[in-house]
């Protein structure tokens, strides 16, 4: 295995594109190193992004924020503008692993690990985040939900890197939230995760909503019917019940060591109600 730490994005792309064997990108490394250590992954080349300046910054853009691929979660929580605008995304990123892991783990890495249970992904998808992908053929922007192709699989071409994630500007009277269910209080992988964004009209009616579910299918689930159950309501009890049922109906989970299929479906509905309640409070300001 070779280790490279280029200082420009072009060099990083060049290294990845030229590698004949298995090449891997190292951002925070909190998933990659575990895979290497266990023998599941034997890369010939690892390209560390943390020496590339543009990858390590959070910069304002079009009313939102562009987050470099090597920015660790801990820095998101320290960024006042980001916390004020997308608290749900920041909180979701803040749930990944321990305080120690927070110092390393990144939004882009969480996305590119392509786990359906990734905490930050439902929150980012709900917020309408876009991934900026750079490769041998230039730069392209895609919705973050299109980056994972399935568990552990990415839709990236050879040599392509997710260079940054753009969290768009937040519309007025909009709130976001993310909650996950885990058996302990910390350190677990989500059994179910729910990201929600709601936008209110001036009279307090929900005008728009996005509900995104994690760990209940091979990729995150954008639950449009669940969102529709909220639109036009004020988030009253009946709307929340409809939301809950629509969320449960959108789940296609599996039985595994972290939870049963039946359990995930039931809890997803409950969690959606709790997540939307927080997002509504935030939308009211």
């Amino acid at each position: 295995m070779r280790y490279e730490a280029p200082t420009t994005l072009d060099d990083a792309v060049g290294l990845l594109a030229a590698e004949q064997g298995v090449a891997k990108v190292l951002a925070g490394g909190t998933d990659l190193l575990v895979a290497i250590r266990s023998g599941r992954l034997e890369p010939d080349l690892v390209v560390d992004l943390k020496r590339i300046e543009e990858m390590t910054t959070v910069t304002p853009e079009d009313g939102g924020f562009r987050v470099g691929a090597a920015v660790p979660s801990v820095r998101l929580g320290q960024h006042e503008g980001l916390v004020a605008m997308w608290p749900g995304v920041v909180e979701a990123a803040g749930l990944i692993g321990s305080t120690q892991v927070q110092s390393r783990a990144t939004l882009a890495g969480n996305l590119c690990n392509a786990s359906p249970a990734a905490d930050s992904v439902p929150a980012m998808v709900a917020a309408g985040a876009k991934a900026s992908i750079v490769g041998p053929n230039g730069r392209r922007d895609v919705p973050v939900e299109d980056v994972p192709a399935g568990p552990g699989k990415l839709s990236l071409e050879k040599g392509e890197i997710v260079a940054s994630i753009l969290l768009p500007g937040k519309p007025e009277r909009t709130g976001d939230a993310y909650l996950r269910f885990i058996p302990r209080t910390e350190m677990d992988i989500a059994v179910v995760g729910v990201g929600a964004v709601v936008t209110l009209g001036t009279d307090g009616t929900i005008e728009a909503a996005r509900i995104v579910l994690g760990a209940v299918g091979p990729r995150v689930v954008v639950a449009d019917k669940a969102a529709q159950a909220l639109v036009g309501t004020k988030g009253d009890k009946a709307a929340m019940e409809a939301l809950s049922q629509a969320v449960s109906a959108a789940c296609t989970p599996i039985d595994d060591k972290r939870g049963t299929r039946e359990y995930r479906i039931q809890v997803a509905g409950t969690l959606a109600k709790r997540t939307v309640a927080i997002a509504l409070e935030r939308a009211k300001g």
Partner: peptide, 9 residues
């Protein structure tokens, strides 16, 4: 920042 030294090369 605190890190797990097992998760860093």
């Amino acid at each position: 920042e605190i890190v797990c030294s097992c998760l860093m090369l």
